[in-house]
Every structure is written in structure tokens, then in C-alpha cells.
């Protein structure tokens, strides 16, 4: 009976992921990573579904989802700006870049703009320290970034959306 409740569009996809990991409870972090890769975040329905399938309390899954930084319980914006805040980037002004983006586009780190177009995130270190400060915009790395150059890049991708 309960199973029916969770039968939804993506159930097949989730089953595929679960089978790939051998329905193994100890691989739950990897399973959740795959779900996140598939959907961009961890939808509540999917978590309830794996909780049932793996016979693991939802509270435990929730504790894992909120413990690891890589997981997000909310959908991300269409475009993603990730600012590196490693030490090398910090001494070269990484924090100022986050603040400026925050003010310019009215978005807080870890959240998205009201129109849902842009998410701002920070990361502890990307290990590309020689390029600091580093910003990743939609998967593309930009080294030695300045506030004005980043503003141009971000406005560029946002404008493309409006066309």
C-alpha cells in the first residue's frame, strides 16, 4: 500500500540507482550523490522512497543530507556561481567577491535569486590555488577573477536567458 504512495515519475530512475549500488545500506552516501547528480538536489519524495526501499529511517537519511555540504535539499537556480573560499583565494580577496555578488544580484550564499535564475554557492577549496581567486560559473573555471570581470560574465549569462 505504502509503496503506491511513492510511485511517481522518477521511481524508475531511483530504482536504477539503488540497483547499481546493490541496495546496499552502507552505500547510502553514494546513492544520494547519484540522486543529487540526476536532479540537481535531493527531492523530498525521492528521499522518502529510498528510506522505504532501504528500510532506513527517514531521520537518518535527513541527518546525512544535512551533514554533508555537497547535498542540497532545495533546487538550485538555473545558473550556478561557485566562489572558492580556500585560504589562497581568501588572501587574494575571495570574500570580497562573494559580498559583491551578493549585493549586485541580491542573492545570499547557498540560495538563489527570486527569479530562480542564479544560485550563489561557496566552496572550501577547489585545489586550483595558483589561479586564485577562482570562481566557477556553470562548470567553467575562471582564474584571477576581478569583481568587474565576474559582473560582466554573470550579466552575460543572465542576459542570454532574457533573449
Amino acid at each position: 500500500m505504502r509503496e503506491k504512495e511513492y510511485l511517481f515519475n522518477n521511481a524508475n530512475k531511483i530504482d536504477e540507482i539503488l540497483v547499481k549500488h546493490g541496495m546496499n545500506r552502507s552505500r547510502i552516501v553514494a546513492i544520494m550523490q547519484d540522486i543529487q547528480n540526476e536532479f540537481g538536489y535531493l527531492p523530498e519524495k525521492n528521499l522518502k522512497y529510498i528510506s522505504m526501499k532501504l528500510q532506513t529511517p527517514l531521520s537518518q537519511i535527513y541527518s546525512i543530507a544535512t551533514f554533508y555540504r555537497a547535498f542540497s535539499l532545495k533546487p538550485r537556480g538555473k545558473h550556478l556561481v561557485t566562489v572558492c573560499l580556500g585560504t589562497a583565494c581568501h588572501v587574494r580577496g575571495g570574500a570580497r567577491i562573494v559580498e559583491s555578488i551578493q549585493k549586485m544580484f541580491d542573492v545570499k550564499p547557498g540560495e538563489k535569486t527570486k527569479d530562480g535564475l542564479l544560485s550563489l554557492e561557496t566552496v572550501n577549496c577547489l585545489g586550483a590555488c595558483a589561479l586564485g581567486p577562482v570562481v566557477v560559473v556553470d562548470g567553467k573555471y575562471h582564474g584571477h577573477i576581478t569583481i568587474s570581470r565576474l559582473e560582466r560574465i554573470v550579466k552575460g549569462i543572465l542576459n542570454e536567458n532574457k533573449k
Binding site: L85, G86, T87, A88, H90, N124, C125, G127, A128, C129
Partner: peptide, 8 residues
């Protein structure tokens, strides 16, 4: 799990 910022 190289987590130290500034180390790669």
C-alpha cells in the same frame, strides 16, 4: 579527502 584549504 584533502580538505585543507590552500592544499592540493
Amino acid at each position: 579527502d584533502e580538505g585543507d584549504p590552500g592544499a592540493y
